[in-house]
Design a protein around this nucleic acid. Sequence first.
DNA 1: ACCTGAACACCGTTCAAGT
DNA 2: ACCTGAACACCGTTCAAGT
Lengths: 211, 211
Amino acid sequence: MARKGYHHGDLRRALVEAALELAHEGGMEQVSVREAARRAGVSPAAPFRHFPDRAALLTAVAEEAMRRFRAEIDRALRRAPDEPLERLEAIGAAYLRWALRNPTHFEIISARRFIRFQSSALLRRDNEEIQAEMRRLLGEARRRGELRALDARTAEIAGRALVYGLARMHLDGHFPSWGVARGAEHRTMLEVLRLFTSGLAKSRYTHTCST
Amino acid sequence: MARKGYHHGDLRRALVEAALELAHEGGMEQVSVREAARRAGVSPAAPFRHFPDRAALLTAVAEEAMRRFRAEIDRALRRAPDEPLERLEAIGAAYLRWALRNPTHFEIISARRFIRFQSSALLRRDNEEIQAEMRRLLGEARRRGELRALDARTAEIAGRALVYGLARMHLDGHFPSWGVARGAEHRTMLEVLRLFTSGLAKSRYTHTCST
DNA sequence: ACCTGAACACCGTTCAAGT
DNA sequence: ACCTGAACACCGTTCAAGT
């Protein structure tokens, strides 16, 4: 890992990786610049040659998490059929699955008070591209006459709020007090997602599930 | 404020109030035991006679915030008409209005990693009572034949996820990047809420809103 | 160019000692 | 019974000095 004498080689990357690890172990507030430095084997001051402050390190961590998140969404879209509403549901399902498996990485992307979202071109771009894809799919569904009469912009935000709310409820530990058993989170999320998309669709399958 | 000699009188309450203030000023992570002590005019060690640790102080803050939140919900329900679906929407609207006006207090209640939710009888009780009310109203709506055929438990969680997601999107600063202008948050939230409840209801008003 | 060491102003928390 | 003062092990950040 270390390179020449004591120039580190790639301290920047080592710090981001240590921070990802720390976040994974104990959540965002456990990520400290000093501990990341310690794990990278450098002095407490070294990170400040690479990042102006803690928020900048966390933003770099968010960029790495966002890359992985994007990759997951894209993979799901490649597998999904050509039907716009099914593709939308596939995005939602991939989003939820990722949030469930990587709660802290999900939080790093979402909780913008730790990072400087606006100052990262990567974060802004990936976010916009995901939005644009959703908007395109909704438009396509409408053109095919599959949608109830509703405002597309409102539907878009509703969909995002629903999915974000589900992921956040998990992250913030709300499910136990809402009667969702440990292990049943994923199934519950998918049922909720389906209830929502079936509500957008022109009354087709009226979807009843027992219990 | 201070009482006899230097026994404070009611240091516990003074600390909770100082902490509420700090949270209001700069968010949860800005709440420090030391600063609360400073504002209450006592030494850094004094708070630890009243709270075993920082999490206990924050839990007390959460309890105070929850009391205010409950009061707001109850007020909205007293004003709402006798129609179950309208009462549900009134709960949602009150929830969103409160979250919008008191973002940090909302976060204190929601982000359970700062507090010890399960060890507070008040928090558990208030949470359960709000859930129970929602469940009652959904059941009533179904009995009156106003609901589409859907699983009540799934619908309940969907409603909560939607509303929580909206509040969280605001709190986490997502609205700007989703094209919701500053000042338009409340209106947007209510439109989304309405889209959702109209999707639960047996296809009555098909609700189109321009732009 | 990149890193160290020491320093500063902050934390949460403990504990002996004061009133 | 309730609070203070001093201490300990932590932070983020700065800056002169080292290689």
